[in-house]
Design a protein around this nucleic acid. Structure first.
Lengths: 250, 250
DNA sequence: CGATATTTGTCCGTATGTATA
DNA sequence: GTATACATACGGACAAATATC
């Protein structure tokens, strides 16, 4: 019989970390990876307790934490079920990661995976209306909600103007805040171009999903109030954790 | 040496069908299936001539036809290359298949694959604001451009109101025309919900793509000028042949 | 840089089947 | 039936652009 605890041994964990948090994140990982899919019933608390080698009350504490995050729902006499936790992300003129999540009652933020400077490719230069091979600041960013990765993106910013932006994003976890620090009080999205792909291994690893599960790729351009392009982003969304919603108003 | 003509014998073809049309559709199929991907160079005319067992001039006629359809582009001295033929489909309040294609300079239309009446599922009833298990007209529709399948959709229409709609769609190849015949002079799209999936075998077959290549699924609701829902559609778009574009205006 | 091979573009021709007047 | 026009298919030659070394 396969036990989750045997494939990811608890022994390796930080001894100061309580068992229940480790078990909770193990279960969350199993759900995110698709071992348990929305609608599935988790093994009973007693079975989980045996698998992880802990008391049932410890499992209950883990499940309660997952429940409060909206990942599972327990029903007395029936079992604990994986919730359909796909997040609606609204694509609109004023798209803000934070606002999108808080609207769904979730907590999350952005994490900078890598920052570097390069010269613009043809596609980047044309999207940002720059001369070919202009200098750019490139940020690889991971977007999360409740510890679950929702998207990874490569974001390009014109460089004399937005030098040092990476530090602010890394500190605040917000692009909007970083733009504000660079004297961009407001910005809007001009266009989004959506395609479906299989993720390359790096993207799949960041999204913690198998490369055989598809992702949504969104290419977008943000412009400041003067209409000058300030950001060209390619974002990969975990296909089954995210619903992109387009609200068609006038 | 492997020859395409041996794996797909020309002998089996309709004797009245010219070789060059058969070869053209074979090549188009290989491109659509992904055997040759955008940017790839096709084998040289001489190689193709040998493979298909025909004269080079016959191959040239086939390629000329593909070229006129925009599937390939030939460059003297270099070769014949598969064009990046992904179509931009704009998601907007007034989304019309025909207009989208003609804007891209393409010819295409809708083909009714199946028509039937059922009772509404929970999702359909809620989207169309109907009582559960109301009667619906269900249409399976294939959308094409230049003979290349772009999307398949299952479209649900409330039934006392839109009886006979299928006949008009089948005849005109246009949903808009069918709505017009049912006294709906204008309609708009309320919302689009976009996800990435792997297609089930039936959808993949209709789109003529392997089930391992992802598709975009778009759930949408159309309403008449009074705001009454008149259509709930689930559309699967061939992921690499379609770019969904969202233009963000005010 | 030049020499050479490859690949498409264009022209000459021949032969055959089919539709039309 | 005959003549004409057209589409199809094969054969060959060379020019022009490109790739490769």
């Amino acid at each position: 019989m396969t036990s989750i605890s045997s494939s990811v041994p608890l022994a390796k964990a930080d001894p100061r970390e309580p068992f229940w948090t480790r078990i909770a994140s193990d279960l969350a990982d199993a759900i995110v990876r698709g071992a348990y899919r929305p609608g599935d019933r988790l093994p009973s608390e007693n079975v989980l307790a045996e698998q992880f080698g802990v008391h049932r009350h410890t499992i209950r504490k883990s499940l309660a934490s997952l429940c409060s995050k909206g990942l599972v729902r327990s029903t007395q006499g029936s079992g604990t079920y994986v919730e359909d936790f796909a997040v609606d992300l609204v694509l609109a003129k004023r798209t803000r990661h934070q606002h999108n999540l808080s609207h769904a009652g979730l907590k999350g933020g952005l994490r900078v995976l890598r920052a570097r400077t390069t010269r613009a490719t043809k596609a980047q230069a044309s999207a940002l209306q720059l001369a070919p091979r202009s200098k750019l600041l490139l940020l690889d960013v991971l977007g999360e909600a409740e510890g679950v990765p929702l998207h990874v993106s490569e974001r390009a910013f014109p460089l004399p103007r937005f030098a040092g932006l990476d530090a602010v994003v890394a500190e605040t976890g917000s692009i909007t805040a970083a733009f504000l620090a660079a004297d961009v009080a407001d910005y809007t999205r001009r266009e989004s171009r959506i395609t479906a792909h299989l993720p390359d291994p790096e993207v799949a690893a960041h999204l913690r999903q198998p490369p055989s599960r598809p992702v949504l790729r969104v290419d977008s351009v943000n412009v400041d109030t003067a209409g000058v392009p300030i950001e060209f982003a390619v974002t990969w969304f975990a296909g089954d954790r995210v619903h992109l919603v387009v609200a068609h108003h006038d």
